[in-house]
């Protein structure tokens, strides 16, 4: 009788401990997995150290935009967007200075996009700004807009 009771007791204790054990294992696992992403996040920002040249932290759109801007726009508008590219001194009126925060904030994205697409002649501005509709796809112009917006923000 006693032995039977003992075995029952024992089996219950075993069962409970097993359950507890399984729970604790679960906890253990989730703990370890929860620890790693945090360490990754911190590592991400510290890792940015060696690779953090200014251009590298650009978003996808800005990166694409930068590439296009440097190729097509910088000759007049300047690498830094100040409207001082090497060709600018031949031009009258001068190319737009994108770092002018006040002017740029009054200029909506849609209008900026329209100006690039249709050129100065399409939006009643100086025809010196050509239309890029035939050369750049709509998406590419959007990328350029994203990039141009950075110039005013950085000031």
């Amino acid at each position: 009788m006693l032995s039977l009771k003992m075995t029952r007791d024992l089996s219950i204790v075993l069962l409970v401990s097993l359950l507890l054990l399984s729970c604790s294992r679960k906890n253990g696992l989730s703990q370890s997995s929860s620890a790693s992403p945090d360490s990754i996040n911190t590592a991400d920002s510290s890792k940015a150290g060696p690779a953090a040249a200014a251009s590298i932290r650009l978003t996808y759109e800005q990166r694409q935009g930068k590439h296009l801007y440097t190729k097509y726009c910088a000759v007049c508008h300047g690498e830094e967007g100040k409207g001082d590219g090497f060709n600018s001194y031949n031009l009258d009126p001068k190319p737009r200075n994108f770092t002018d925060t006040i002017y740029m904030s009054a200029f909506s994205d849609t209008r900026l996009l329209e100006t690039i697409r249709e050129g100065g002649r399409g939006v009643n501005k100086s025809p010196l700004m050509p239309s890029w509709e035939g050369r750049l796809k709509r998406v590419e112009i959007e990328y350029v807009v994203f990039y141009i917006r950075r110039f005013a923000k950085s000031n």
Binding site: S33, S34, P37, I40, K47, Y60
Partner: peptide
């Protein structure tokens, strides 16, 4: 879940690409 999909999971060899290497 955020941690399992984007975070670094042990023994998962292809963690999410950092933006600069996209």
């Amino acid at each position: 879940s955020y941690k399992e999909s984007i975070g670094k999971v042990e023994y998962w060899d292809k963690p999410i690409f950092p933006r600069e290497y996209m």
